[in-house]
Design a protein around this nucleic acid. Structure first.
Lengths: 231, 231
DNA sequence: CGCTCACCTAGAACAAGTTTCAGAGTTGAT
DNA sequence: ATCAACTCTGAAACTTGTTCTAGGTGAGCG
């Protein structure tokens, strides 16, 4: 007895697996579809899955995200879930991408108000941090997935990294960063990432995280050697 | 048919599980033995296990460390392996502790030769990095375990963190760091850690890692506000 | 109308981490 | 010498991520 959500179906696009990783893994089973647009109904499925994942991660964290339960909760067969997200890690990283996009949108609407780039970046990161604090289990799940990801998830993890960079550069209000500044931004990202992990595993307090973030932002010399108004 | 390694046995200390985590987990099954000295024979078992773990991790990395195989390879029953290391993560983190101790010993014998603290720290970290490069699979396994560790492994992860701090402080040749410097050291650790992950997952090149390490060491202002010769 | 194709579903099957259990074996104490 | 306590062993069982198989359903098309 099927539930009641499988009345009519679509049949067009090849595979719902986006952003295929063609890195070192041979093109074994995954079709080389470069960008399948995803049917409306498929997009809806994808959303249901991501929402279920975030909900389950919200309580219990990483361990509470069980693939069978995600599948059931999003009214999708287990095989289908794996067709959309080839592993639990992929699923959680995609969830993080999703959340990051939301965050970036929010930040765009309410940009940080600090005077210097360093202040704005620190403020932005602490704001993001507070957002994560509101859902510590979810944060735990996403970050654990992110750091546990192996090479097969590189494209997605890279995407997350680019998104983070974009957020920081936005906060700096710097359209044309120098290589040195990009390196500084990477260091800030590293620090944020790692401080987050330390906090999530209970090895660092919030104030310690704040201090570390302020430290790295202040010392990273975010001001351009020459003021950048020639963009 | 027992193998041939279980002739005589010891029985004294409570549990070989060191550094019990009494954090939030209730004292369910683990006896509260604070520091069980481990019989000679138990110590030998522990070594065998760690060596087998490192060997398996050396090829194949994280996934190649399979608990059944570790047990078999170290001539120990599966249950015993779990008595010594309550999870695969614990086992790999302990392996990292072991390797770090070795590294620290080596570094003590051949300290870095740079002029400034920043140079010495960067040199030290790059040397450690090259050591990891020699066994990339092992490095992968240990670092993945470290970042994947949840709260139940906090004590052990903390120990690794302290060891790393000690190595950096040694390189700085600074016995009495200021709080600001400690924060800087934490940032450096965060960066090292995260850069390592990025390299291991193929998202950063070695030169990028070097640049990031030099960046963070240079900018972190490792020189004391006043020169520290009053220790 | 019936064919074909891609997608989906339900469920079994497999793999590896973890737990559990009964039975020895060892050691120190009485 | 016997006893009690503890550890180790060998093997099965359980859990959860992942894969596989068989069958069903809708859409375009001859």
């Amino acid at each position: 007895m099927p539930t009641e959500a499988n009345r009519d179906e679509e049949a067009r696009a090849a595979t719902p697996d986006r952003a295929g990783g063609a890195a070192t893994t041979g093109a074994g089973t995954a079709p080389p579809a470069p960008a399948s647009p995803l049917t409306e109904r498929q997009e809806a499925r994808r959303r249901r899955i991501l929402r279920a994942c975030a909900r389950l991660a919200g309580r219990g964290g990483f361990d509470a995200v069980q693939m069978r339960e995600v599948a059931e909760s999003s009214q999708v067969a287990l095989g289908t879930l794996y067709r959309y997200f080839p592993s639990k890690i992929h699923l959680l990283v995609a969830t993080m991408q999703d959340q990051l996009e939301t965050l970036h949108g929010t930040l765009r609407k309410e940009p940080p108000a600090g005077e210097s780039p360093a202040e704005r970046v620190a403020e932005t990161l602490m704001r993001a941090f507070r957002a994560l604090q509101r859902e510590p289990h979810l944060a735990d799940a996403m970050v654990r997935a992110l750091t546990f990801a192996d090479r097969s998830v590189s494209p997605e993890v890279d995407q997350v990294s680019r998104q983070t960079t974009a957020i920081i550069l936005d906060a700096m209000e710097l359209a044309d960063p120098t290589p040195g500044q990009l390196s500084a931004v990477r260091v800030i990202e590293h620090t944020w990432h790692s401080a987050l992990i330390a906090w999530l595993s209970g090895r660092a307090s919030i104030s310690q995280v704040r201090i570390d973030m302020e430290t790295v932002c202040r010392l990273m010399d975010l001001t351009a050697p020459r003021s950048a108004d020639d963009a």
